[in-house]
Design a protein around this nucleic acid. Structure first.
Length: 398
RNA sequence: GUGGAUGUAGUUCAACAGUAGAACGCCUGCUUGUGGAGCAGGAGGUCGCGGGGGCGGCACCCGUCAUCCACCCCA
């Protein structure tokens, strides 16, 4: 038996899980502050819901057949399930529908830094409006989240309409301009069937394309929304991979991560695949794990604190009952209290445990204390100890 | 899918082809009511797995699996 995780799948031990929860809470808070509501969808979808939506990369979708013979697949992103939900509940959901979704997605890719097979995405989308205010608000939201987290970011933005006449393969070559440089892009374009002269021309026209009307409008809206538009950079060669984008597209980058940490765009035709009705939408997916890694690197996460306020130690088997009783009282008063279980363990072991777990206080109830109906409260950081009544302990800890 | 690097104690890493080691962590004691520091002691390893040549392999060769990094693509 191999005791190990699947490749690309991870455990989060308490210390790390706590940090993740902290960041998730922050992100959720920003989503809520813009009036977005939570949505959760199942991990599994019928395979046909997912296939045909993403383009070339569909071999990365985890799929299998159930015992009953259904072809199913693990959620690959949160946009397509959202489209399914919109179609399925179109008569009950009021439009515009603004939702956020914080759930795992799965992709069978080869792992590397910042890339896993199971990872958490934080999505927000506005469905049912083609107004550019919606686009601007989505970008504003991204900026707000990273402001809240204290991370400096830049958002590269473009309009898919700039590529309307171009072949998909050519577009994906052009997308690499910043990464591999002009000459490599040109040779890739030639490889994909353009003659060199045309390739050069297309590239130079595209690189110098002025902002589209939509982009200008979005930037203006962002200005009105109080966003720092110097962080939003027009990049006419930005393309992005997913097939379903139709209008603006954007990618969020930050120093310390080579790949984008949050990206999205407008997809006005995707939902039509499910409803037959055209319902416009715009949104993004935030790469939670990549964001965490950068926050960690830049020391933007608070020192890990225990959620437990006090460890109630146990002095002896007889006095154990007293520890149990007091633990209950403290919890009733709303104090997070851990009770030491094994009454034969020595006090030093219990103190060491509290210290390792960063529990700020330890309560000691020995024979002396029990006799006087008090307990000794030890502050683990200062080492200071106080002999207190129950009331005194509670007021000290709250 | 492609390429590179690395697999030795719980962790991070040593060890010329000739008896597998250190640091940290863990356990016990110094200290029968007090954690972090110190001292003394202790537990813990089929050297990833399989094969090959060799008197002899942790070390060399081949294969395989795993991990990490990069490409592709993406979050």
């Amino acid at each position: 038996m191999k005791v190990q995780n699947l490749k690309g799948f991870r455990d989060f031990l308490p210390k790390e899980a706590r940090k993740r929860q902290y960041v998730i809470d922050k992100i959720r808070g920003v989503f809520e502050s813009y009036g977005f509501e939570p949505l959760e969808t199942p991990a599994l979808e019928y395979k046909e819901i997912l296939t045909g939506k993403y383009g070339e990369e569909e071999k990365l979708i985890y799929d299998f057949k159930t015992r009953g013979g259904d072809e199913v697949a693990l959620r690959y992103d949160q946009t397509v399930p959202l489209a399914r939900v919109i179609a399925q509940y179109q008569n009950t959901l009021p439009l515009p529908f603004k939702r956020y979704q914080i759930q795992n997605v799965w992709r069978g890719e080869n792992t590397q830094k910042g890339r896993y097979r199971e990872f958490l995405q934080c999505d927000a989308d506005t469905v049912g409006s083609s107004s550019l205010v919606a686009d601007a608000e989505i970008i504003r939201l991204v900026l707000s989240i990273y402001e809240t987290l204290g991370l400096e970011v830049k958002i590269k933005i473009n309009d898919r309409k700039n590529f309307e006449t171009l072949d998909k393969n050519i577009v994906s070559a052009i997308d690499k301009l910043e990464k591999i440089g002009e000459s490599s892009v040109l040779s890739e374009m030639v490889e994909k069937g353009m003659n060199e002269k045309d390739a050069k021309k297309v590239l130079s026209v595209l690189s110098n394309k002025p902002q589209t009307k939509d982009i200008k409008m979005i930037l203006q809206n962002l200005e009105e929304m109080g966003a720092d538009t110097s962080k939003v950079i027009y990049e006419p060669t930005l393309a992005r991979g997913l097939d379903y984008y139709t209008g603006i597209i954007f990618e969020t980058v930050t120093e310390g991560s080579t790949s984008s940490i949050c990206s999205g765009g407008r997809y006005d035709n995707l939902i039509r695949n499910f409803t037959g009705r055209q319902i416009p939408a715009v949104g993004f997916g935030l790469g939670f794990d990549r964001t965490m890694e950068v926050l960690e690197e830049k020391n933007l996460l608070p020192a890990s604190e225990s959620g437990t306020k006090v460890l109630v130690s146990v002095f002896s088997e007889e006095l154990g009952k007293e520890s149990i009783r007091i633990s209950n009282i403290l919890r009733e008063k709303g104090i997070n209290t851990e009770l030491w279980i094994d009454s034969q363990d020595k006090l030093d072991k219990q103190l060491k445990y509290a210290s390792l777990k960063n529990i700020p206080y330890v309560l000691i109830i020995g024979p002396e204390e029990a006799k006087n109906n008090t307990a000794t409260l030890k502050n683990m950081e200062s080492g200071e100890q106080k002999n207190l009544s129950l009331e005194g302990i509670a007021s000290e800890l709250i």
